[in-house]
Design a protein around this nucleic acid. Structure first.
Length: 590
RNA sequence: GGGGCCGUAGUUCAGUUGGCUAGAACGCCGGCCUGUCACGCCGGAGGUCGCGAGUUCGAGUCUCGUCGGCCCCGCCA
């Protein structure tokens, strides 16, 4: 059933316009629907641009019989004249609805099996079925739209960077495994049995070396690989918009990224106001309990420790003696919450583990009520009311404990409340920068410091003196760009001096010999006139997901993997032959 | 690694306290129909109840295991 040689497509189905009226056209596409009225058959023919109605009637010999045979998802070629529809039969639902094609010839190019789920309806099949028949799911309008949007976005991105003087330069996928960071995907080497390439978690070091090489401004739309457990917003391979700039001020990078995001979001008619607000890491944590706050709504975390400094409530007093604090969230107008609602919130907090317990205060017309023990007097409640600026009908939800836990859990409670109480304004887009993350974090299990970002992040100049004496207090020249509580990208000014890089390695417990073995090429490069440089990497899939209004990365990636990293369509991963293993010098256990 | 939800015609689902010869809608197949557009009307086919054990006179339903999908925690420099 090859395409008849004399037929050539002259127009996409979805692009047939009033201007085609009286012209003879040939369209090729999939049967979306057949409406068989006996001696008159309507076929909706679909391609990526949309749908056009084809009419088969007895006046054109053969078309009726061909149309009768047509089944959903058959591929047809239709030649005919474009004609106006009668006024009464115009379909205002589709862009081509004022015209139709009166078929003179219909050819079946390829028949289709009955599809496992309807292509022409958004009614969903299970994710499992959709992924198994991904080629059919992709044929549906939603994914067609998402991937077309993705194309337009990547085109806009490349255009943007070109105009801004960036060069797109490719970096290797077969590279070397480096310590720290996520688990690597490994590729065994055939020529060097027992040795492995690693797929890049990001092109971090290569782009730094491109700066050393003098390329000055680099970008790449590049695949990255991380062998970690997945989420709806995490795939094992994902795409970054990666960029690096020589001689930058932090402002330089912020401005480029703001302009870029402004450009990308303009594709879906979202206007982005720049510059983005900025929060330092400590501000973000203390006000929102997270390093990627959703600032579309308020519900800030308020410190009311002072109100309990001499409390008769022993639990709170003890918390403060242990160096902890008491913080809470003012929920306006929710003093009306029932016992059940409050218990549910308490349950939510308890479900987070960590042994935290939620207390509440209500400001009602009959005075203050609270879940705190009776021993906590009116005076203390008034003190809370004062420091949290509670108003009548407000509910105040409180948590005491070590700083880290209070912030973590109240941060989650804040998000939970916003969702539950519908406090998130629709169609608002709250971008922000979070900056000055800690450089290092102490790992209690491994008894050593880890880089919060990566080991090439530069410390703040004014904190350099603390690097050896009090590493945990050293802040980094790092920054994240956040949208609606989603981390879109993360970057930093890098270390460009060999001495400092060696010092940081040392603090991380990477001794000079190991540093030389694993990062020798970087240290060497830094010794040959590396320019100051910095950059950022943005998650392209996540950006597209937000642009498209989707909740899962799977809906903006053509061939995604399941939550357990399986490709249900092609069946990856799979076993390989004994011969392949042997060539690689590999032997499987058991 | 841990927790939660789910798995029944092609698809989406229903299936009471264990009694089922397992239903519905859509889809599919056949017939009728010249202005439909979710066309309509008439008829029909279609099931290893994810898989495997167990309890029971009897299991879609209860128990255990297992496989798969989704969500979350840990993890993701």
């Amino acid at each position: 059933m090859n395409s008849p040689a004399d037929l050539e497509r002259t127009c996409h189905c979805g692009l047939i316009k009033e201007g085609h009226v009286d012209q003879t056209v040939t369209v090729m596409g999939w049967v979306d629907r057949r409406r068989d009225l006996g001696s008159l058959i309507f076929l909706d023919l679909r391609d990526r641009e949309g749908i056009v109605q084809v009419v088969a009637d007895p006046e054109h010999a053969g078309t009726l019989a061909k149309a009768k045979e047509a089944r959903p998802e058959d591929v047809l070629a239709v030649t005919g004249k474009v004609v106006w529809r009668d006024k009464e039969t115009v379909n205002p639902e589709i862009p081509t609805g004022r015209v139709e094609i009166r078929a003179e010839r219909i050819e079946l190019l390829n028949a289709s099996e009955t599809p496992p789920f309807p292509i022409n309806s958004p009614a969903s099949a299970s994710e499992e079925t959709r992924l198994h028949y991904r080629f059919l799911d992709l044929r549906r309008e939603r994914l067609q739209r998402n991937l077309q949007l993705r194309h337009r976005a990547t085109m806009a991105i490349r255009n943007f960077f070109d105009k801004e003087g960036f060069l797109e330069i490719e970096t290797p996928f077969l590279t070397r495994s480096t310590p720290e960071g996520a688990r690597d995907y490994l590729v065994p080497s055939r020529l060097y049995p027992g040795q492995f390439y690693a797929l890049p978690q990001s092109p971090q070091l290569f782009k730094q070396l491109l700066m050393v090489a003098g390329f000055d401004r680099y970008f790449q739309i590049v695949r990255c690989f991380r062998d970690e457990d997945l989420r709806s917003d995490r795939q094992p391979e994902f795409t970054q918009i990666d960029l690096e700039i020589s001689f930058p001020k932090i402002e330089t990078i912020f401005k480029v990224v703001e302009r870029l995001l402004e450009r990308i979001f303009s594709l879906v008619e979202i206007s982005v106001s720049t510059p983005f607000p900025r929060l330092s890491y400590p501000e973000a944590i203390s006000q929102y309990g997270t390093d990627r706050p959703d600032i579309r709504y308020d519900l800030k975390l308020l410190d009311v420790s002072a109100a309990f400094s001499r409390s008769s409530f022993r639990v709170f007093r003890q918390i403060m003696e242990d160096g902890g604090l008491i913080k809470g969230i003012r929920v306006p107008g929710r003093a009306s919450f029932s016992r059940k609602q409050l218990d549910d919130l308490r349950g939510f907090v308890q479900d987070q583990g960590k042994g935290a317990d939620l207390s509440w205060i209500k400001v009602t017309t009959e005075g203050m009520k609270s879940s705190l023990p009776k021993a906590v007097g009116e005076k203390e409640l008034e003190a809370v009311r004062g420091s949290a600026q509670l108003e009548e009908n407000d509910l105040f939800l409180m948590l005491g404990g070590p700083q880290k836990i209070v912030h973590l859990i109240l941060g989650r409670l804040r998000e939970h409340l916003a969702l539950q109480e519908n406090l998130i304004p629709e169609k608002s887009h709250a971008f922000l920068w979070v900056y000055n993350f800690p450089l290092l974090e102490w790992d209690e299990q491994e008894k050593r410091y880890f880089a919060c970002s990566h080991p090439f992040t530069s410390p703040l100049d004014e904190d350099l003196d603390l690097l050896e004496s009090d590493p945990a207090r050293v802040r980094a020249k790092s920054y994240d760009v956040v949208l609606n509580g989603v981390e879109l990208g993360s970057g930093s000014i890098r270390i460009h001096q060999r001495e400092l890089q060696t010092r940081v390695f040392k603090v991380l417990g990477i001794e000079p010999e190991e540093a030389q073995a694993k990062f020798g090429f970087l240290l060497e490069a830094l010794g040959y006139g590396a320019p100051p440089h910095g950059g950022i990497a943005l998650g392209l899939d996540r950006i597209i997901m937000l642009l498209a209004g989707e909740r899962s990365l799977r809906d903006v990636i053509a061939f995604p993997k399941t939550a357990r990293a399986v490709d249900l369509m092609c069946g990856a991963p799979s076993t390989v032959s004994e011969k392949q293993l042997k060539e690689l010098g590999l032997k499987l256990e058991k």
